[in-house]
Each structure stands twice: as C-alpha cells, then as structure tokens.
Design a protein around this nucleic acid. Structure first.
Lengths: 212, 212
DNA sequence: GGGTAATGTGAATAGGCATTCACATAAAGG
DNA sequence: CCTTTATGTGAATGCCTATTCACATTACCC
C-alpha cells in the first residue's frame, strides 16, 4: 500500500531520523522501533536498507564526521587571517551543535566507542585530524605574529576543542539550560585574550551576562 | 553458608564494584548481574542494600562528586600561590581520572543524565560549584598580579576544565591509547603560558614528545 | 541459648529489544 | 502485459536485564 523509495533515499532518511532521536531523547532511546517510527516505516523495513543497527551507527558516524570536520577543514584551507579562521571554525562548530544536539551525544557515546571498535577507531582518527587542522592554522598564526610566539600549536588546538566540547556536553546534560551561542561567545572572547599577541593590548571590559 | 556483612559495608562494596565495571567495560556493561558478581554476592542480594539500580547510580554519583570536587575545594581553600593551587588541582584531577577511568564515563554518561533527572541536576550543580571554585582562585590570582589582568575568571576556569574533560574523554574513548599524565603535563605547560602575567617572560622551549 | 531481624540465595517473572520469516505489492524492464 | 526484483509489512523468535519471591542461615540481643 505505501509508496516505495529506493535504498539511497531510505538510508538518508534513516540516518537523519537517528540523529534527531539522539538529539531529543539520547542514544539509549535509539531503538529500531523508534527509528522506524520516525522515518515512517515498519521495523522490518529498516533491515532492507541496513544490515543491522551497527551499520546505521557507522553511517551516522560518517555523516557527522563529514559535517563537523569537513567544514572546519574547508575554512582552514580558505583565505583570511588566523584569528578570523579560528573564530569562524569555533562559531560554526558551536552553531552546528546548537542545531543538532545529537552530535556531541553521539560522538562521546559509549554505545559507539565500546560497542564498535572499528567505528571508534574511525572517529578517533577524524578527531585527531581535526586537532591537526587547527594546529596548522595556529602554527601559521604564530609565524605571522598574530598569535603569541610562546604557544604550542597542538596543545592550544586541544584547549580550544576542549572548550567547545565541554560546553557542548554541559549544555546537552542540562538539556539546554543556557544559551550555547552566548556561552560560546564569552568563551571565545576570553580565549582571544589568551592567545593573541600583545602588540595591540586588548582593553579590559566586562563580558556580557553570565549564565546560571 | 557465606559470611554476612552489614549494609554500610555492602553499599560501599557495591559502589566500588560499579565504578570498576564502568572503568573496565563501560556504563552499558553495568548490569545487576555484573555488579553482584564483582562484589561477590547474588543478584538478589543487591536489593537488600539498594532499592534498585537507580539508587546505586545515585550513590556512585555522590561518591564521585565528593572525590573530585571535594578535593579541589580543599586545595583551593588551602595555602599557596594561585599558580600552585591551579597546578595541583589540575594534576590531581588528571591523576584521579587515570586511576579511575570510570569517572569521566560516568559523569558524562547519558544513562545518568537522561535516565535520572534528579541525579542529573545534582551533578550539574556540583559541576557548577567546581567552576565557581576555580573562578575564585583565578580571580584571586588576577588581583595579586600572578595572572593576566585581562582574563575573565569564569571563562578561564571553564577552559581549564574543558581541557581536562576533553582529554579524559579522548583517553577513555581510545581506551588509554596515550599517557594521560604526559598529555596533561603538556597541556598544563601551554595553559600556563596562556594565563601567566607577562612579568617574567617564559623562555620558548619545545614540549616533550607528542602522542599519537 | 532462644528468638528476632538482617543478610543471603536460586528460581521465577516480566518487559524491552534486535533480528528473522513468510508473505505482499509496487516498480522497472522487456 | 508479464516477469523479475526491490521494497514493504505484521507476527514470531530469542536474548538480555531488572526486579520479586519463597525460602535459608547468620549475627545479634537479652
């Protein structure tokens, strides 16, 4: 009775449904029945398009990796000053998370890391690549004198990412109790003061409104 | 046949068993059967000491909060310079995690945050308290001139915590593929350069051995 | 030492979940 | 138009897990 769609389309629908479910109810709510319901099909039909739940997770992992890290790599490779690039990457990442709360939940979910060693390795690799991309941008900024010469690029990159991820997790945990964008803005302002070369000393201001 | 112990002792044994299991196999492996086996008792006996699994998680949450944040608060209240205090808190935290891999897994586990709103609120509160404690230490350091005057205390504290948590999660995810202590050391060296007042300029050195 | 309460156990019970099966039916190609 | 293949479904199946129950046995109190 219901119309039919080919596997290519169905796979995308299923992956998107999965991402939404994780964002709204968490990884533990990611059951076949839930996915099938959200994607508008029967449980059994899921298996026409994916070998099993594991394969869905792998596809979701690929999608998320591409969305987050692909974007950052594009910005890094483009034109602009180091500070502009870092700022855009940071804000894009925060915005992407704000729009898809399932993102950090999935990336740091144990379901993935302990349940599927292959997927875990892939994600860890992408994460290392992300750090590498940021490191390169930071190293370039040090060379041009935009950033302090005393910085270690890799550690500074890790610190920046940690800032994002920690805040994303706190936001996810508290189920959006504060504005992710506003918090990201405050953190970025502060980070800028930490890394910027002292040539043009930043005037001391107060940061806007603190959250709860 | 087996000897009997009172509830006080049993509760501690059960909580410790749970923490170990999470560290070794993850939160998803935290079943009643697994806990009972590790603690040397029958499944049914667990229910003599806890009302249910949820109550075990709550007790574990209290234990971990006390271990991590209680320690930091103690250090913060003690004597020493700001940089010494921050350094000790940072290293203690990293060491505690290295000794108990279950710690970050539990704190950021969805099983807790989405499964038990009450517990989630408690943990979020403790986390906010931790940030507050660090902020106070940092604010004091700014006043004495040890730290740059341009820092925002709360955002700097969040950055420090993010650095720890992100690294702990990456370490946990990769199942200990790198040395947590060594990485913490590198990150701390870099962070020091970020926050320290420029009175005694740090000589430029290279950081020891990078991990994978 | 006898009774009572706390602690201990193996064997149900019940629910949730991923996956499979036998059977439709739409789509595509000739 | 008819065959073949891809897509679709409801109803099992079987496993894993938390929790309960009826029945011991130890520890403690007087």
């Amino acid at each position: 009775m219901p119309p039919k769609k080919n596997t290519q389309i169905r796979r995308k629908e299923i992956v998107q449904a999965a991402l939404q479910i994780i964002g709204e109810k968490g990884v533990h709510a990611l059951t076949i029945t839930e996915i099938a319901g959200r994607a508008g099909m029967s449980d059994a039909n899921i298996y026409r398009h994916f070998k099993g739940k594991q394969e869905i997770l792998e596809a979701l992992g690929d999608f998320i990796s591409e969305a987050v890290m692909g974007k950052a790599a594009g910005i890094a490779a483009g034109n602009g000053s180091t500070l502009e690039k870092l700022s855009v990457i940071f804000r894009s990442h925060a915005a992407l998370i704000a729009a898809n709360p399932g993102l950090p939940r999935f990336i740091f979910s144990e379901e993935i890391h302990l349940g599927d060693p292959q997927l875990a390795k892939t994600i860890a690799g992408k994460m290392a690549g992300y750090i590498e991309t940021l490191s390169t941008v930071i190293a370039a900024g040090i060379k041009t004198g935009e950033l302090r010469s005393s910085l270690f690029p890799r550690e500074t990159a890790t610190t920046l990412l940690g800032m994002i991820q920690f805040t994303a997790l706190r936001w996810s945990i508290t189920r959006g109790a504060f504005s992710l964008d506003a918090e990201a803005e405050r953190l970025w302002n502060n980070f800028l003061r930490l890394i910027q070369a002292a040539s043009s000393p930043t005037p001391t201001e107060t940061n806007p409104m603190e959250p709860v």
